[in-house]
């Protein structure tokens, strides 16, 4: 499938909005429909997005955006799935049973952004030492008087 075709096909999967521009197809999904869409992307024979090569989060000060970069090793498609989260109560379904690499990536996002992944089997701090629960260093309003270098 070409890009347009793929975009059309993806449009049929549920209530999504596409973001124009960018190297790959960017699609937004509500956090409620998120889990169902991800499962479909993985299981759909026409798509087969089996490779989650990047999982991260961006703090836009008004909201957080989860960003999932997916790739299909069979068809070589690449898409970006995004989902906006509430900044005060960021919660989203886990995908680590769909792509097992997500387990570590989600733990990383959990400690750096404070996003809570529902049904994650082992949501603990991964990189930060004990005592950093609740502080989310990669959020824009994080301040550390001692160690931070501001330019």
């Amino acid at each position: 499938m070409e890009r347009e075709e793929l975009q059309q096909y993806l449009g049929g999967l549920g209530s999504l909005t596409f973001e124009e521009g960018g190297e790959w197809i960017n699609l937004f999904v509500e956090s409620g429909d998120f889990r169902a869409l991800m499962e479909q992307l993985r299981r759909d024979e026409q798509l087969g997005f089996d490779y989650l090569f990047c999982l991260t989060c961006v703090d836009f000060k008004t909201h957080l955006t989860m960003v999932y970069h997916l790739s299909s090793t069979r068809y070589r498609y690449n898409i970006v799935v995004k989902s906006k989260l509430d900044r005060q109560q960021p919660e989203i379904e886990t995908v680590c049973d769909i792509w097992r690499t997500a387990e570590f990536h989600e733990r990383e996002v959990y400690e750096l952004f404070g996003v809570k992944f529902m049904n994650h089997p082992d949501l603990r701090l991964l990189i930060l030492p004990e005592g950093w629960e609740g502080k989310n260093p990669l959020r824009k309003d994080f301040e550390d008087e001692v160690n931070m270098i501001k330019l």
């Binding site: 990047c54 961006v58 970069h69 387990e103 990536h105 990383e108």
Partner: peptide
């Protein structure tokens, strides 16, 4: 695979950068 994900808001510095490091995923296995 090493990935660099830059989110730019048009300024002189990147708004957000994510490095997708190969070792991180390899270690999880």
């Amino acid at each position: 695979e090493f990935g660099v994900y830059i989110v730019s808001e048009g300024g002189m510095t990147p708004y957000r950068i994510k490095f997708r490091s190969p070792g991180f995923s390899n270690l999880s296995a």
